[in-house]
Design a protein around this nucleic acid. Structure first.
Lengths: 301, 301
DNA sequence: CAGTATGCATCAGTATTTCTTATGCTCGAT
DNA sequence: ATCGAGCATAAGAAATACTGATGCATACTG
């Protein structure tokens, strides 16, 4: 199971074609064909159905392992690369849309004063993408948000050797369209809203399966799925009555056309966590320290 | 970063020697030398210091990635292998010492009746080892125990494509030596015991860092470390006054020479979870189903 | 339904890689 | 200072991993 073979295997299934996978990877079609054949011989199973090119049962199983493996491989390489390139005045931050609150903004401002010529780049991405950027070293630091019980850590997927620390905790709010019967309420209970229509916006709002998990309840059915990192697009959908969504309070209150009603019962908070490699860039380390100073939180390896 | 190279890299650092790593892996010493050289050339850094053979800073970083990578690689291979070998009448269960409670025993008994000629093998191991056995297919099914808030999942490390389900929840108890002043109490608070002496027995009792985490407190200092899966050895240490330990109630009460006092405050339970690959053996699937029937619990991917 | 085009498989040949064996070299111990 | 254990290096043999050419099957097209 050479990583090269896995990489072409993934590419073949992603493009549903040997030849385009070949051109993407810079191989000849013949090489790709041999790669797949070698993998299949090694594992003793057919992995790819040809014409049309799709995964067999075994191929599907392998597809659940291969991307993660390749990511961790890149993460290891990035980790070592970081030991040598030390550019103290550059910082790349990747974050989910709702993760960038006052706590982080303030820490960044202080970093700007402390480490003077600071070249800062910020990227807004989905949850998995943020983690991927941090692991592969394309970002020095990540900010991910989610919902948990107060001062509980977020249930993040496997991160390898990284450090996670709480950056902020805020109230959670449900987004109602302005005219909604519940829009003028002082608070709502999430458990009362399981049967409502929701917007499935896993990259911007709290994902629906997370809501199901924290409520230990089914429901939270979605009629519409909103991909991408556009908070105002989400607000517009909510304002138009396409469904509800959960966001952190100060941010939700500032969105146009919607009413943000605080969430009680389950006691939940919007938590944003800062993640960086176990072996961070100098600037990342400094920012993490500033955030930790502001709001000391538990640390995880 | 060929897996072969990583494997020899790990072996070299584990044995602190190129030549013994070579003989263990079935290579010549020369090959091992070239493997390390190739890795170092690929990553552009020296990874191991020779004479004596130790990890450099970069090598230490790589050592945090490599074993996990190799494990996941084996897990992927095992996952595919499972698709072909279907021996419905064999079941290998790996579990931590305190994970095997009445719930599981009862399910196993029912399985014995349902799937008649059933060849059962049970292995008692530490937490990581149980997970490793399940991932690599050496066990069909794993049972891991730990402490959490009621009906919260255990914080298990990365598991890849596996399914986890709650098998049982029991009361937690602290083990006191029979003559201890607190031994006759009806209950104790864990937060009152942070300054006591504890036994660090990560493979049998609840690990001390877990106690620190659930209490959000420091302390729980250990004077003695107890490795291995011997519950009675742990009880003997506790009876001799070497320190305290946390175990599930019915089990703790049955141990000789110690008093088991129920734990309140933090509200915690002893929870055992059943884990099996996303693609389980037939017998494993059946047992999981029996356990799930008995005590329906939340499922995680 | 035939003809054609597209796309994966296969073959042969070459280049590269990866071992082994043999030998050299370096550090640490006595 | 010498010796020995152990890693590095060299050279050659074997396996491997590419490319380019060609074959063959399937899915379109008229």
């Amino acid at each position: 199971m050479d990583p090269h073979l896995l990489r072409t295997f993934v590419a073949v299934l992603e493009h549903r074609s040997f030849s385009t996978a070949a051109s993407v990877l810079g191989y000849t079609q013949s090489a790709v064909s041999q790669h797949i054949a070698a993998l299949e011989a090694d594992l003793g199973t057919r992995l790819v159905e040809r014409r049309p090119v799709t995964a067999t049962a075994a191929g599907t199983r392998l597809m659940e392992h291969a991307p993660g493996l390749l990511l961790r491989l890149d993460a290891a390489r990035a980790d070592l690369a970081r030991l040598h390139d030390t550019r103290p005045s550059r910082l790349t931050v990747a974050h989910t849309p709702a993760a960038f609150g006052p706590a982080v903004a303030q820490a960044l401002e202080r970093l700007h004063h402390a480490a003077h010529p600071l070249e800062l780049e910020v990227r807004v991405l989905g949850r998995e993408a943020v983690i991927e950027e941090v692991l592969t070293g394309r970002a020095d630091l990540g900010l991910v948000d989610g919902a948990t019980a107060p001062s509980d850590p977020l249930p993040l997927p496997d991160l390898g050797p990284t450090t996670t620390l709480a950056a902020a905790e805020q109230e959670l709010a449900v987004l109602f369209p302005d005219g909604h019967p519940l829009a003028r309420r002082g608070s709502v209970r999430l458990t009362d809203l399981t049967q409502a229509h929701w917007i499935d916006a896993p990259d911007t709002a709290i994902p629906l399966d997370r809501l199901r998990a924290v409520c230990r309840a089914d429901g939270f059915r979605a009629r519409i799925r909103h991909r991408g990192t556009d908070l105002h697009g989400l607000a517009a959908l909510a304002a138009a009555g396409h469904g509800l969504a959960v966001l952190p309070m100060p941010l939700a209150a500032a969105l146009p056309g919607v009413a943000a009603v605080p969430l009680t019962q389950p006691r939940l908070v919007h938590r944003t966590e800062l993640i960086h490699p176990a072996n961070p860039t100098e600037a990342a380390r400094q920012l993490a320290e500033l955030v930790a100073d502001r709001r000391p939180g538990p640390q995880r390896g």
